[in-house]
Nucleic acid binder design. Sequence first.
DNA 1: GTCTATAGGTAGATAGAC
DNA 2: GTCTATCTACCTATAGAC
Lengths: 198, 198
Amino acid sequence: MARKQGSHAGITGPKVQDAALRLFAQHGYAAVSMRQIAAEVGVQAGALYNYTADKQSLLFDLLRGNMTELIDALDAAALTGTPLARLDAFTRFHIRFHLPRRDTVFLSYMELRNLTDENFAQIAELRRAYEDRLEDILHDGVASGDFTVPDCRVATLGLIALLTGITNWYRPGGRLTAAEIEANYCTLVCQSVGARLA
Amino acid sequence: MARKQGSHAGITGPKVQDAALRLFAQHGYAAVSMRQIAAEVGVQAGALYNYTADKQSLLFDLLRGNMTELIDALDAAALTGTPLARLDAFTRFHIRFHLPRRDTVFLSYMELRNLTDENFAQIAELRRAYEDRLEDILHDGVASGDFTVPDCRVATLGLIALLTGITNWYRPGGRLTAAEIEANYCTLVCQSVGARLA
DNA sequence: GTCTATAGGTAGATAGAC
DNA sequence: GTCTATCTACCTATAGAC
């Protein structure tokens, strides 16, 4: 079946998202022009507006997509067992989700400033929902006497910062494999909440 | 002694730095124009170039000043005692230094991308020097049997991310005082390296 | 759906008067 | 040291041809 001349729907769209993600992560949202994104995709700047209302939507859609994907994947993992087992599983989940998505993670933590107030509020709500999953694990561990944590909210924010920081220095092919890094961080995390290691 | 008309050397200079810091931290380096900085200072854009060679130097000087100040302050603190005592002191030092400088810290971690290659290399070297101070403490603790850490380098990067993350959510007048936060993080940090708490 | 062209505005940086 | 004025370049977004 013949396709309309010049029609690339379903191809150009994702390429625009990919190019925007890569360029925003590398240079920062404000430093990247629509012309640069268009050049990366291989079209002229005006053509981008067939796929996004404006530059802001491009950023917002990337961040929202990342957060909903993250939360859906965590809920699908359905962590069960003792608080320590769930904490260990959360740690491994977080690392496995984030390591292959370093560009997106970087964006999600660095470019919140460049969202409009309304868009920021939506992303913040999603982040809070994710954090709450971890905080629940910590609360349960404290209640059961498995964990020693002075303040679960502080520990939650601290642990997420600890884990997400990996994306700032991890490089594929570096000194440690992803599995080694994962094991290292599991030890750090479980020890940090005062859990006895198995 | 009469001052030259319109001369404000020693006043405008620091004001330019302050305004650049505040605006860069709030909106991001790339999103802030020299005209905005000038307006914040209360001069016209052209006058800024009496105090900085260009916009890049403005950013670089802020970051370099922060890093050298940080390292000098740490060395002046001259942490001594057992590895656990030194780790506790490092944690408190890091938090006390960073909490009142949230704008600068934010810049130092977010705007490295916007440095030229040469300027980036200089800042990276200073950061490495700071990290090494913590890594030495961890090495000593492992050697003495006080700490259980699988990989000191990983733990160093992790702990710095953990501690620096405070600046992302701390607000003066929030639920916890700075002293409470400090105590919370000391517990987390010391437990994370497998140290027995005093 | 993509192109060219362009509107309307702002950017960093400089020149020369005072 | 600061001002006004300006240069050159780039920006986002839109209009209309194909």
